[in-house]
């Protein structure tokens, strides 16, 4: 184990997979000479060269479409979209091509493709650059959507995504890059795609979260512990395929749940997870499932207003108290 930031864990996963497999290469805006806008691919260009660390024009359709074509020839492209907000430009290729080609041609086409994108707000980037639209992408069968909440998972999940023969959208929360944690150094350390994980055990309330909200949920759990409430934190890690088993197992013990996400509440991750709790564990429900999410506004630039709109640790804490005490 080594202590490192999420940024280092992601960078390490990319580096190791490129060392391991010649067919892995990176393409995207400023991934090469610049070293990545979030410095994740710093040093890659000098080490791996311009053929494997390819700077692209600012043209998301060309990035994702080109990566799909390269993947069809058997390569394993890691296409970087600077932010998930730019994925809308490439929406057709993500939704109509990447998610469908394997099925539509009855298995003839394989897409060992990873699309990396940063998501989340809180950096005063204004409404167009601060969205957390992760749930939208989880709507489409054929695409895998993964979003880690800890440095260790970031490494293990990204390595699995790169080795996967399916197209994976790998969502990183930009405000988590500095979060530190213990990360296995094993070059074959893999975390399975489509498997949720209990990040903290507890018997009183289940907090379901993913990505940045895992960190927030763990902090809320510490606050709850001081009040004598033991929260179990279940990290979804993948939004599609969605693994409800650990959530349901936990809920059957706690009978109470909060679902936290950074994106908007309507038609979101919390909507899906809570609906499934009611479907799969209705007899165990002791209180209505609470959803913690972003206020339904385009995120404003002003820092105070922005934080007012974003879900906070305190919101999770209060929601948990509410489902426990009614």
């Amino acid at each position: 184990m080594a202590r490192m930031t999420m940024r280092e864990a992601i960078s390490r996963a990319l580096w190791e997979e490129m060392e391991r497999d010649e067919s892995v290469f990176i393409m995207g805006e400023e991934v090469g000479v610049w070293g990545g806008t979030y410095a994740v691919t710093k040093g890659f260009y000098d080490h791996f060269g311009p053929d494997r660390v390819k700077d692209t024009p600012i043209a998301e359709t060309a990035i994702v479409g080109g990566a799909i074509g390269a993947a069809l020839t058997g390569l394993r492209p890691v296409a970087e979209l600077m932010t998930i907000n730019f994925a809308f430009v490439a929406m057709d290729h993500i939704v109509n091509e990447a998610a469908k080609l394997h099925y539509m041609f009855a298995g003839q086409f394989k897409l060992p493709l990873v699309i990396r994108a940063t998501s989340g707000g809180g950096r005063q980037l204004g409404a167009t650059h601060s969205q957390t639209p992760d749930a939208i992408f989880a709507h489409f069968p054929g695409l895998k959507v993964v979003s880690p909440g800890t440095p260790a998972d970031a490494k293990g999940l990204l390595k699995s995504a790169i080795r996967s023969d399916d197209p994976v959208l790998f969502i990183e929360n930009a405000t988590l890059y500095q979060v530190k944690g213990e990360v296995p150094e094993d070059k074959d350390y893999l975390e399975p795609l489509g498997k949720s994980k209990v990040q903290r055990e507890g018997d009183d309330v289940t907090i379901v979260a993913y990505s940045k909200m895992v960190q927030a949920a763990l902090q809320a759990a510490d606050m709850l512990a001081e009040d004598g409430i033991e929260a179990e934190v279940v990290d979804l890690r993948s939004l599609r395929p969605l693994d409800m088993d650990p959530v349901i197992a936990s809920f059957k013990r706690t009978n109470r749940a909060v679902v936290a996400e950074e994106g908007w509440r309507s038609f979101g991750v919390g909507s899906e997870v809570s609906a499934r709790i009611y479907e799969l564990a209705f007899d165990y429900v002791d209180a209505p499932v609470k959803r913690v999410a972003q206020a339904e506004v385009p995120l404003p630039y002003n820092a105070d207003l922005e934080q007012l709109a974003l879900p906070q640790v305190e919101d999770i804490y209060l929601a948990a108290k509410e489902v426990v005490y009614g």
Partner: peptide, 29 residues
Amino acid sequence: VDLNFWGGHAIVGAHIPIAAGLALGDVYQ
């Protein structure tokens, strides 16, 4: 795929960047 015939794409023009990617695959390999 065995005949190197890669479809058949229904969204107008969407296969054009994919074609560039196919060629990139050949250059890379």
